[in-house]
C-alpha cells in the first residue's frame, strides 16, 4: 500500500521533470530558429497580429477594471480605518505600484493564456491529429521553425506592448473611480502617481510580461505538438494548455517576487 503511494508519487515527479525537460528542449529549439525570424517575418507578423492586435480590446477591458478595482479596494481599506485623508497623497502611487508590478502583468497574462495559449494548442493540435505536422516534415519544413518560433517570438514581443496599454487604462480606470467615488482631484491623484512610482516598477512588469508571454506560447505549442486522439484530444489540449500556462505564470510571478 505505502509502496504503491511512493511509486505513484515517484511516477508523478518523474513525469513532471520529463515534461519540464521537453518544454526546455522546445525552448532551445525555438531560440535556435530565432535568427531565421527575418526570413519568416510574414509568419511572425501574422502571429503578432493574432496575439497582439486581436487581444487588445479584451486587454483594455480587463486593464480598466483591474485599475478601478485596485483603487476601490485600496481606498475602501483606508476609509474603513478613517485614514483616507491621511492616505490621500499615497493612494495614486500605491495603486500605480501594485498595477504596474503585479496586477496588470499577471491578470493580462492569465487572460492571454486563456485566449491565445488555448488557441495555439488547439490550432497546432488539430494540425497534429490531421497529419498536417507530418506534411510539413515531408516538405522539409521543421515545425519548430514554422509553427513554434513565430508564436513564441510574437508572444514575447506583444505581451509587453499589451501590458503598456493595460497599465495606461488601469491608471485611468483607477483615476476615474477615485474621482467619482472618493472626490479626489486629478492633481491629488497624478501627483501621487508621479511621486511614488518608479520606472523600475514598470520595467519589472514588462520583464515579467515578456516571460509570461514566452511561457504561454511555448506551453501552447508544446501541448499542441503532443496532441493525439482526434477532436477529443484537441479539446483536452486546449484545457491543458490553459491550466499549465496559468500555473506557470503564477509560479514565475512568485519567482520574480522573490528574486526582484
Amino acid at each position: 500500500m505505502i509502496g504503491n503511494i511512493f511509486a505513484a508519487v515517484g511516477r508523478g515527479v518523474m513525469g513532471f521533470f520529463a515534461e519540464l525537460g521537453r518544454i526546455v528542449l522546445l525552448l532551445i529549439a525555438v531560440f535556435r530558429y530565432v535568427p531565421s525570424a527575418f526570413r519568416s517575418r510574414r509568419l511572425v507578423l501574422e502571429q503578432m497580429s493574432v496575439i497582439g492586435v486581436s487581444s487588445l480590446p479584451l486587454v483594455l477591458l480587463v486593464g480598466s477594471f483591474t485599475g478601478a478595482i485596485a483603487a476601490l479596494q485600496a481606498t475602501n481599506l483606508f476609509a474603513k480605518f478613517n485614514l483616507l485623508a491621511l492616505a490621500r497623497p499615497f493612494v495614486g502611487g500605491s495603486i500605480a505600484t501594485v498595477v504596474f508590478t503585479e496586477l496588470s502583468p499577471v491578470l493580462t497574462a492569465l487572460v492571454i493564456a486563456g485566449r491565445v495559449g488555448g488557441s495555439i494548442a488547439a490550432q497546432i493540435g488539430t494540425m497534429k491529429v490531421s497529419e498536417q505536422i507530418d506534411a510539413l516534415e515531408m516538405m522539409a519544413i521543421h515545425p519548430d521553425r514554422y509553427l513554434a518560433m513565430p508564436r513564441v517570438l510574437a508572444a514575447m514581443t506583444m505581451m509587453p506592448i499589451l501590458i503598456i496599454f493595460s497599465n495606461l487604462v488601469a491608471i485611468l480606470g483607477a483615476f476615474f473611480l477615485v474621482i467619482l467615488k472618493f472626490n479626489f482631484t486629478s492633481v491629488d491623484y497624478f501627483i501621487s502617481v508621479r511621486n511614488f512610482f518608479s520606472v523600475t516598477e514598470i520595467l519589472t512588469g514588462l520583464l515579467k510580461s515578456l516571460t509570461f508571454g514566452m511561457a504561454t506560447a511555448l506551453i501552447g505549442c508544446y501541448v499542441g505538438f503532443r496532441t493525439d486522439g482526434g477532436a477529443e484530444g484537441v479539446g483536452q489540449s486546449t484545457v491543458r494548455s490553459f491550466t499549465l500556462s496559468s500555473a506557470a505564470i503564477l509560479v514565475l510571478d512568485a519567482i520574480f517576487g522573490y528574486v526582484l
Binding site: Q132, D134, A135
Partner: peptide, 9 residues
Amino acid sequence: YVFQGAALF
C-alpha cells in the same frame, strides 16, 4: 507523400 486525409493546410 499523400496523406490519408490529404492533410492540406
